[in-house]
Amino acid sequence: MSTVKPKLYYVYDPMCSWCWGYKPVWQKIKQAVADDIEVVYVLGGLAPDTEEPMPEMMQAQIASYWKKIENFLGTQFNYEFWTDNTPRRATYPACRAILAAREQGAEQAMFDAIQVAYYTQAKNPSDNSVLVDLAKELGLDITQFETDLLALKTHQALLTEIRFARSIGGNSFPSLFLVKGDKSVEIPVDYKDADVTIALITSEA
Results as ranks from 00 to 15, higher is better:
Ser2Pro: 14
Thr3Pro: 00
Val4Ile: 15
Tyr9Ala: 04
Val11Asn: 02
Tyr12Gln: 05
Asp13Asn: 10
Met15Pro: 00
Cys19Asn: 05
Trp20Arg: 06
Trp20Ser: 04
Pro24Gln: 11
Ile29Pro: 02
Ala32Phe: 03
Val33Ser: 06
Ile37Phe: 08
Gly44Val: 08
Gly44Trp: 03
Gly44Gln: 07
Pro48Asp: 11
Pro48Val: 10
Thr50Phe: 07
Glu51Asp: 15
Pro53His: 03
Met57Ile: 04
Gln59Leu: 07
Ile62Ala: 02
Ser64Phe: 06
Lys67Ser: 13
Lys68Arg: 15
Glu70Asn: 11
Glu70Tyr: 05
Glu70Arg: 11
Phe72Arg: 11
Gly74Met: 13
Gly74Lys: 12
Asn78Ser: 13
Asn78Gln: 12
Tyr79Lys: 08
Glu80Asp: 15
Phe81Arg: 01
Asn85Phe: 10
Thr91Phe: 12
Arg96Lys: 14
Arg96Val: 01
Ala97His: 02
Ala101Phe: 02
Glu103Arg: 14
Gln104Ala: 10
Gln108Cys: 01
Ala109Lys: 14
Ala109Gln: 14
Met110Arg: 02
Met110Thr: 05
Asp112His: 08
Ala113Gln: 06
Ile114Met: 02
Val116Pro: 02
Ala117Ile: 02
Tyr118Trp: 07
Tyr119His: 11
Ala122Glu: 07
Asn124Gln: 07
Asn124Cys: 09
Ser126Gln: 04
Asp127Thr: 03
Leu131Pro: 01
Asp133His: 07
Asp133Val: 01
Gly139Trp: 09
Glu146Asp: 03
Thr147Arg: 02
Thr147Pro: 00
Thr147Met: 00
Leu149Trp: 07
Leu152His: 09
Thr154Gly: 08
Ala157Tyr: 01
Ala157Ile: 02
Glu161Asp: 12
Glu161Ala: 07
Glu161Thr: 09
Phe164Ala: 07
Arg166His: 14
Ser167Leu: 06
Gly170Cys: 09
Asn171Arg: 11
Asn171Tyr: 08
Ser172His: 12
Leu176Met: 13
Val179Gly: 06
Val179Leu: 13
Lys180Gln: 11
Gly181Leu: 10
Lys183Thr: 15
Val185Asp: 09
Asp193Thr: 12
Asp195Cys: 05
Thr202Gly: 07
Ser203Ile: 00
Glu204Arg: 08
Ala205Val: 01
